[in-house]
Nucleic acid binder design. Structure first.
Lengths: 233, 233
DNA sequence: CGCGCGATTGACGCCCGTCAACTGGGGTGG
DNA sequence: CCACCCCAGTTGACGGGCGTCAATCGCGCG
């Protein structure tokens, strides 16, 4: 009674890595996959482990973070359903550049390095998709580097929150809610600041009616105000 | 009397993008290339231009910088001989993410998007190399993001200078010299600080005998001291 | 019910960005 | 060939944004 049996291969077509494959191709990709369930808080892969598996999130969310020599962590990003992770490392050939942790109970599809390389050989489209996906991530990293280098803290937080709400939000009665548990600390590690400053900023925004927040929950009530903060001169 | 006529195709094998191709393949790649000479200070491509050309630096150096909405610039990196540029944009499909400027008189090989895609089809190795190269850049971006987010200015400058000396240095009587003209402003835009702070830091290091510097020139005299600054607890 | 982790808030101070003034060397044009 | 000028660099003074330290609160899980 595997998940695989209940899954329509065509859902895989929504994964950017497998975009453009025909039904036969998608079915073969799915058959080559194995399934993994990870409980909230558990690691999916660890920084510097040999990168031998590519994952696609099926349900749940994960956090990818890099810890430096000093023990400080930087959050690279969050992985949403139908997004890929680990591809960079597997394609680049070295170890994973960060640690991935499930922030909710999650189900993932997994392919070994050998398998993904075989699939890329069979379907050159997959290699092209991988290039395109990684290029996009590289550009978003460049954008973040620019922000951290040149912008004040409040604006960085606004940018980051806007992006999170956009990519991982779900609309609720109160506004757009980040669809997974996220702490002030996480947000601080994404924006290069401290949890204290994030807390102060969110408190101020709360008083202005821009956000609503509870423990590990953030709801954006006024997206345009956030935009104004992010883009104001 | 083109440069192409005087160039051994095998030199192209040192370009990571074309690594592992056989002599026939390299020759075909070279035949598909066009040549461009760019004077110091001239743009090679502009941010947001349609990305339709991949370049390989043959001789000279270029700076790639991203300017934000506010006009602030962030230096993405410098391109050394036999390194590639523009691949991300061409593969990713959108415009160039930054502006590339020759910092010295430079010669480049250029391939149109259509050509590079044809070459990738003919030689799947090229696509794999592109993936590997871009993965490496993504990882180095992640490292820089971590540094800018978590480290003090002096240490960031030390890290950056070490990397520059490593990748673009040439050994001289006095020490290892950055092999192209670079201003305090450039270094500031690479490390997320101001030219004033860079100047003060280099002055201090000069007094300790760690670096030697002149207009647009930096020489690292004591690499281990730099390392100590970069890694000290 | 109690413990722990996430969040809040205040006080303090320092790193480094900003403003400002000056220096010097090299390239250009007369 | 010299003089001017501009650009890169240097250095001081100042102050504020935000990191750091510290204390407290309260929700939610065990």
């Amino acid at each position: 009674m595997s998940i695989r049996a209940t899954m329509d291969p065509r859902q895989l077509g929504t994964v950017s890595l497998f975009e453009g494959l025909d039904d036969r191709g998608l079915e073969r990709v799915l058959q080559a996959a194995s399934i993994r369930k990870v409980a909230a808080g558990q690691a999916i892969f660890e920084q510097e482990d040999a990168a031998d598996t590519v994952f696609v999130m099926v349900a749940g969310h994960a956090k990818v973070a890099k810890r430096g020599a000093d023990g400080q962590e930087t959050v690279i990003g969050f992985i949403n359903p139908w997004e890929m992770m680990g591809c960079v490392a597997v394609c680049g050939g070295t170890g994973y550049p960060g640690t991935a942790t499930a922030v909710e109970d999650s189900w993932l599809l997994a392919w070994s390095r050998a398998t993904i390389e075989r699939l890329m050989d069979e379907h050159s489209r997959i290699a092209r998709n991988a290039l395109s996906t990684i290029s996009g991530r590289l550009q978003s990293m460049q954008t973040r580097l620019h922000e951290v280098s040149n912008e004040r803290v409040e604006r960085r937080i606004a940018h980051t929150l806007r992006r999170l709400a956009d990519a991982s939000g779900r609309d609720t009665r109160q506004g757009r809610e980040i669809a997974f548990p996220i702490t002030r600390q996480d947000l601080a590690e994404m924006t290069g600041t401290t949890l204290h400053t994030v807390s102060r900023t969110l408190s101020a925004w709360h008083q202005q009616g821009i956000v609503e927040s509870a423990r590990q929950r953030i709801i954006v009530r006024d997206a345009s105000a956030l935009e104004r903060i992010a883009e104001s001169e």
